[in-house]
Design a protein around this nucleic acid. Structure first.
Lengths: 219, 219
DNA sequence: TAGATTGTTAATCGATTAACAATC
DNA sequence: TAGATTGTTAATCGATTAACAATC
């Protein structure tokens, strides 16, 4: 059993949600041939405190060196490992509407070590026509496909009305993680699965909130 | 000047980011013809504490009634107003790639009182062909269009390389809010604008993190 | 009125920041 | 060695939860 956190103490959600941001900034540093960086320098770039960076990283281990700072490539690799990039998870996309298609063609998966193995829909019009080189299959085949290929992740880009039953089918087929764009609260408490709910509209609304406050102030 | 918060005290980001979730749940209650609800009942549905609900709502005013609870429609309307739905913000989408197209056809905007007035791209192949009934125009026209139509929000779904310059053009054209899917950190500190950065990949990575931890435990 | 439930204050909890000893 | 910067503990800050008086 690999121990990422030094003393098995629980890592807070706040820290976990900041990891992908470190990952992005470190990749950028590598791209710019920056080989080492101190927490203070990184904190200036990321607009956070150096203290927070050191605390966050130390949840997982001592990746730096006193008097030197952090080796960028080493740190990037460590965070990459913590985030499971090297686990090479596999995924299917369920629902080939506009968002499904957009995600199927998006390079974000491969950049993070996740490979899309299959696309699924119920519409006969699009079944059989590959998207971005990946076959679009009938939902009738989804269980068999996921079981045979040991798929880890299901991306749910289908209508609210179909999301609940599809999710249950997928959980039974061994899916362990749901990246859920369906705006449907999934109830899969009987299954040992992780769910990441994405409500795109929510972030648009917080933007609208800020804009509305500005307007109110000017009245 | 409208006072949403009772004593002009600053509302925390944590509270603001929860508002759209209340908004969703309240709409669901209305759909199910539920006319009143107590903080305790709502807390059970939403899996949060009743205390938090009462605290959150009270940042903006006393919307409930002792001994009764909350009038669902009234509360929905209040939150709707706080989130600026009745401000009827206007938006343009910049970049008609897969994600841009998916958003242009997505009903999420109209549900939140935001109307998409124009779509923009640099590719001559798609300029002139409307998407979801909205014209796709050349980026050369974006400044004129935004100024004339007093556009509030720009949705950035263009490549990283083009995002920075486009954002500056848009800020100069009077855009006040950016819903930024470009994965580019925008530097618009000279302009009085609000930015909501969306990093879709980040949420996929936190899901991968959870899955990776599960695998590690089993080793 | 009695019961219910809010609005609000006080207590707790957790997360962030500051400080500094350890050490490269 | 001296200077720099981490890892880590302690202090602070803010957010969440609990409690209860106010009141419908």
């Amino acid at each position: 059993m690999i121990q990422d956190d030094k003393n098995d103490k629980q890592i807070s959600q706040a820290v976990i949600r900041r990891l992908p941001r470190y990952y992005r900034y470190l990749r950028e540093l590598i791209r710019n041939n920056i080989l080492r960086i101190s927490s203070r320098e990184l904190s200036e770039k990321m607009k956070v405190t150096a203290s927070q960076i050191r605390q966050d990283l130390n949840c997982f281990g001592g990746f730096g060196q006193q008097g030197y700072g952090y080796n960028v490539k080493y740190l990037y690799n460590e965070i990459s490992r913590i985030l499971g990039v090297d686990k090479h998870f596999t995924a299917v996309i369920i629902g080939m509407g506009n968002l499904g298609k957009a995600l199927a063609r998006n390079p974000l998966f491969e950049k993070r070590g996740v490979s899309i193995k299959g696309l699924f829909d119920i519409s006969p019009d699009i079944i059989g026509k590959p998207c971005n080189g990946i076959p679009v299959m009938s939902m009738n085949l989804v269980t068999e496909f996921c079981v045979i290929n040991s798929i880890d992740i299901a991306v749910l880009t289908l209508p609210k009305s179909e999301a609940a039953s599809a999710a249950e089918t997928l959980a039974k087929a061994g899916i362990k993680g749901f990246w859920n764009f369906s705006n449907m609260e999934l109830s899969l408490s009987e299954y040992d699965v992780k769910i990441e709910n994405i409500h795109l509209g929510d972030t648009l609304m917080t933007l609208c909130y800020e804009l509305a406050r500005d307007l109110d102030e000017k009245e």
